[in-house]
Computed example of a mutant assay.
Amino acid sequence: MPHVLLVIDQLTSGGAPRSVLKLTRALLESNIRVSLISLSERVALPIPEGAEWHVVAFTPASRWEKLRRYQLHARRLDAFLASHTTPFNLVVANLHQAHQVVSRSTLAKQAWYCLRSDPWQELLSNKRGWRRGIKRHKVRRLYDNKRIIALSRTNLESLGRIGSQPQATRVIPNVLHVENIHRLMQARIAEPELQDTDFCLFVGRLNFRSKRLDRLLEGYLASGIDLPLVVIGDGENERLQQEVIRLGLQDRVWTLGGRDNPYPYMRQASVLLLSSDYEGLPNVLLESLACDTPVVSTDCLSGPRDILVGELARGLVPLEDTQAFGRTVRDIIEHPPAITHEHIAPYLPQTVSAAYRELME
């Protein structure tokens, strides 16, 4: 049985750790042995049954250790691996800390490095002047001559923009467990007022910097539609309420907070809206399509353009064109595109598992 090692920063929270655990489940279902290594003691998410998992953490005890933390952490990882002699057919490092540590370890040449967000946006967008130049050099040194997995084609284009020259690249998206989504979306919506109502929907972290909730509200207002907007997510709720009041949308926007199961809302929504400045590969778009609900999204880095193809590309709008966002919302509601099996087939567990199996050959 082939054996895959997945190394990740932490398994506590966040979209990337959850995506790695979905991948773990898909690989196990394909009769592939999976070992997980968390580089942090923070492990709160449920580990799929059948997976082997370990914690190899390192906490710097001094300023000197902090400056050399990646190298020292790599030594600890190497010591752990030396005590576990089972060979791996494939090693995949996930997230930036894992990339830094694995690249300094004995796994460096064997590993693939999976980019789970847009590298330019995550690593360089907040740098200016000479600081950006230094950071660009560090990123290039990290990824040059490495084997890179990206969730989307636009992730790879972003790495090229930095100037990195990988040894090999593959695009392998996140896993979408459609059967599980179809089961969960059958539940009844908790709010009686919404149970028989058409509405627009936003699902995600309430973060103004990345999700651009100001653009979401302004685009919704520009659409001129009568449907309410339902917002599901936790985060900057107070600031969101201030924007709702500023735009006079108090009677039209429902803020529900977080929901463990958003799929009944996705199933009933007329359209799902995404207004982000950047993404990794936005799972929420895939989940909405799995619920047979069309999407309007900014054409941001990175992922929406890879997901919304064919007729679904009508739902893509330029980043800074709020009026176009509004027009597209109205158009998609009035003339919804057909969502077919081909739109979600690349993200099915068996498809993604087969792509990882090919890396072992």
Rank of each mutant, 00 (worst) to 15 (best):
residue 319 L to V: 07
residue 240 L to C: 04
residue 225 I to A: 00
residue 164 S to G: 11
residue 358 E to T: 09
residue 339 I to W: 07
residue 320 E to F: 10
residue 277 D to K: 12
residue 297 S to R: 04
residue 302 S to V: 02
residue 94 N to C: 05
residue 83 S to N: 14
residue 231 V to N: 04
residue 28 L to G: 02
residue 207 N to A: 14
residue 93 A to L: 04
residue 193 E to V: 14
residue 62 S to N: 07
residue 292 D to E: 15
residue 11 L to Y: 13
residue 295 V to D: 10
residue 281 L to H: 03
residue 261 N to A: 09
residue 119 P to A: 11
residue 357 R to S: 13
residue 288 S to C: 08
residue 213 L to C: 06
residue 332 I to Y: 12
residue 109 K to Q: 15
residue 8 I to N: 15
residue 165 Q to Y: 05
residue 259 R to C: 10
residue 89 N to W: 05
residue 294 P to R: 05
residue 353 S to C: 08
residue 281 L to A: 02
residue 173 P to F: 02
residue 161 R to W: 13
residue 52 E to Q: 14
residue 201 L to Y: 05
residue 352 V to L: 01
residue 143 Y to L: 04
residue 30 S to N: 12
residue 100 Q to R: 15
residue 79 A to W: 06
residue 157 E to T: 08
residue 215 R to Y: 14
residue 139 V to D: 13
residue 360 M to G: 01
residue 60 P to V: 03
residue 78 D to N: 15
residue 287 E to C: 08
residue 169 T to I: 06
residue 119 P to K: 09
residue 85 T to G: 00
residue 238 E to F: 02
residue 338 A to V: 12
residue 173 P to V: 00
residue 47 I to W: 07
residue 15 G to P: 09
residue 135 K to S: 14
residue 183 R to V: 12
residue 146 K to Q: 12
residue 357 R to F: 08
residue 103 S to E: 08
residue 92 V to K: 02
residue 357 R to G: 07
residue 269 A to V: 07
residue 344 I to R: 02
residue 23 L to T: 10
residue 162 I to K: 07
residue 272 L to I: 11
residue 274 L to R: 03
residue 354 A to S: 14
residue 130 W to K: 07
residue 65 E to D: 12
residue 261 N to Y: 11
residue 24 T to A: 09
residue 197 T to Y: 03
residue 331 D to L: 08
residue 230 V to M: 10
residue 250 Q to C: 05
residue 197 T to G: 00
residue 360 M to P: 06
residue 52 E to Y: 09
residue 203 V to P: 00
residue 177 H to F: 13
residue 322 T to F: 02
residue 6 L to G: 00
residue 40 S to R: 10
residue 202 F to P: 02
residue 309 V to N: 04
residue 170 R to P: 03
residue 318 P to M: 06
residue 323 Q to H: 08
residue 202 F to C: 01
residue 116 R to V: 11
